[in-house]
């Protein structure tokens, strides 16, 4: 629980005045879902900050569930700002312009909050938070999400999400103070992003931080290799349990048993038949596709040849190899 005012007030989340309470209809905890794209964007922005800047901020975009209890952060963009001991300056025109541009390309993604690349919450955080949660340009009537992501060298990248409650003794003070309430968050990615993330993750151990984009056969080989590794791990564990090196775990055993039971039982005749029909389908389509390719190649060569005849030198077309489907 982080409140920025270090003076000896008692901070309570309570409605101050009618006007203020109206700006924050709900301070109920929300569940925040972060898509990796937004995180990568923030990390990139953090790398591109000006040398003297401690932290950078930006606007979070995303979608809200209908009852407002779940917020999915899907996108974000950076906003320039200047911070000194006494004051903070956020480029609001820039924020508005970018928001408009983003809305044009992605009308579904609306303003949900803002991010900062330092774990610290201070008075300026409260000011900015109040701006993002305000009526009109802000997220009103929904609470604005504040996401902090620390990018300090040598430490883990810590992600925290907050919503805020109004706090302060007078209406004047309320504008530059608020109570940040931590809310749970999770990183969730979609199926379509899995392949991309996998490729990104495959580069994590390479020294130059590069990874080639694999083709299908390589991907298959890798997946088979990974599966073999996992089987190896499990059989090692089972072997150790049998040898008595590790205390057996009933739940784990049951889980393994039910996994093994998942293997389908088919009669050899059925298996043979299913296998043959399927493999024939695949090979036939591949064969036909290759025949078509040869035909197309032939027709193109003929067309060119007919015209090239008059010329002294025939055109040279790169030789193509047409591979017949491998018959195994």
């Amino acid at each position: 629980m982080a409140s920025q005012d270090s003076s000896s007030f008692l901070h309570l989340s309570r409605p101050l005045a009618a006007a203020l309470s109206a700006t924050q209809t709900s301070t109920a905890p929300v569940n925040v879902i972060i898509q990796p794209q937004a995180l990568f964007s923030i990390l990139d922005h953090s790398l591109r900050r000006n040398a003297e800047q401690e932290r950078v901020i930006g606007t979070l975009l995303g979608v809200r569930s209908e009852d407002g209890s779940e917020v999915e952060i899907r996108n974000c963009f950076a906003v320039g700002h200047n911070e000194s001991q006494e004051q903070v300056e956020v480029d609001m025109d820039y924020h508005k312009e970018m928001l408009a541009l983003h809305l044009k390309a992605n009308p579904k993604e609306v303003l949900v909050g803002w991010y900062a690349t330092s774990p610290e919450l201070n008075t300026f955080s409260a000011l900015i938070q109040n701006f993002y949660a305000s009526q009109g340009d802000g997220t009103y009537p929904h609470p604005a999400i504040h996401l902090t992501l620390s990018t300090q060298p040598g430490k883990d990248i810590a992600i925290n999400t907050y919503i805020s409650a109004p706090v302060g003794v007078t209406a004047d003070r309320a504008s530059d103070s608020c109570l940040f309430l931590p809310v749970p968050h999770e990183i969730r990615y979609q199926d379509a992003e899995k392949a991309g993330l996998e490729t990104i993750a495959s580069a994590k151990d390479s020294e130059d931080r590069n990874a080639p984009v694999y083709n299908d056969v390589f991907a298959l080989e890798k997946a088979v290799q990974d599966t073999l590794d996992m089987i190896e791990r499990v059989s090692n564990y089972v072997g150790q349990v049998i040898d008595g090196d590790i205390a057996p775990n009933n739940t784990l055993g049951r889980f393994l048993l039910s996994t093994l039971a998942l293997a389908p039982k088919v009669s050899p005749a059925d298996l043979e038949r299913m296998f043959n029909t399927h493999i024939q389908d695949v090979l036939l389509v591949a064969y036909l596709a290759n025949t078509i390719r040869t035909q197309i190649d032939l027709s193109n060569r003929l067309a060119l040849h007919a015209f090239a005849k008059e010329e002294p030198k025939p055109t040279t077309t790169p030789a193509t190899t047409t591979t017949a489907p491998a018959s195994k």
Binding site: K204, R209, N210, A211
Partner: peptide
Amino acid sequence: TIHNSHLVT
């Protein structure tokens, strides 16, 4: 090829 920044790594 895919490239990761240090932070992403």
